[in-house]
């Protein structure tokens, strides 16, 4: 199954180098997991900053500018995309290349609509007089939410590149590992968003 996708070059040494390769791919995935844990700490510091500064609006606008409608939509969009990235992994495990690429495209499109909604929201906030320099509250807000949005954008570029690679090379041990990693990253971004949604928006409008 792997050999077929891999081409003839590797068929020969296949049985032999099998376990070594296998361990290495697992190790790479573990390395990515460690990166995610450090990202947890990065977001932790941004959350800590936001929580500490949440009352410091310097007499200017505060969380009353939040409009939950768009935020609720983004939340369900991102949640659904986390699910569809899981469906992509399931399709991959069945060896279904078309399904895999299809679900990745759905995931990327959902991610794109999430970013679109976020950019719209930020533009609107700036027009209403809440830019990054308005107060400590808004600096902390844009840094935290913007860092998450940046992560999603990076994920989109990465997913697009991976879709192209999958279309060219098919499901190989290497692309398999990459799909696993990108879907892990995507689930992670959804988890971070749950806390952004709860702590920044829901508690903000309470």
């Amino acid at each position: 199954m792997m050999a077929q996708a891999n081409g003839h070059a590797q068929t020969q040494g296949h049985e032999h180098g099998h376990d070594g390769h296998h361990d290495q791919e697992e190790l790479r995935q573990f390395g990515f997991w460690i990166f995610l844990i450090t990202d947890v700490i990065l977001f932790g510091t941004l959350f800590a900053t936001f929580i500490v500064l949440r009352g410091n609006t310097a007499g200017g606008p505060g969380p009353e500018l939040f409009e939950l409608g768009g935020i609720i939509a983004s939340t369900f969009i991102l949640l659904t995309s986390s699910f569809t990235s899981g469906l992509a992994v399931l399709a991959m495990n069945r060896g279904n290349k078309q399904g895999l690429i299809g679900w990745l495209i759905v995931t990327a499109l959902l991610g794109l609509s999430f970013i679109y909604l976020e950019v719209t929201e930020f533009t609107k906030l700036v027009h209403e007089g809440a830019n990054m320099g308005t107060s400590a509250f808004w600096s902390a807000f844009y840094t935290l939410v913007g860092t998450h949005g940046l992560h999603v954008s990076v994920g989109l570029v990465w997913m697009t590149a991976l879709i192209i690679q999958l279309a060219r090379r098919g499901i190989t041990p290497v692309t398999k590992r990459k799909v696993n990693i990108v879907s892990l990253y995507w689930h992670f971004l959804d988890v971070v968003w749950i806390f952004v949604f709860t702590i920044v928006y829901l508690m903000g409008v309470m």
Binding site: M2, H18, Q29, N93, K176
Partner: peptide, 16 residues
């Protein structure tokens, strides 16, 4: 990697 462990095992399962 939680995913990876199983996936690699799964795909290599009968080969082993």
């Amino acid at each position: 990697m939680a995913q990876g462990t199983q996936n690699t095992h799964g795909s290599h399962g009968h080969g082993h």
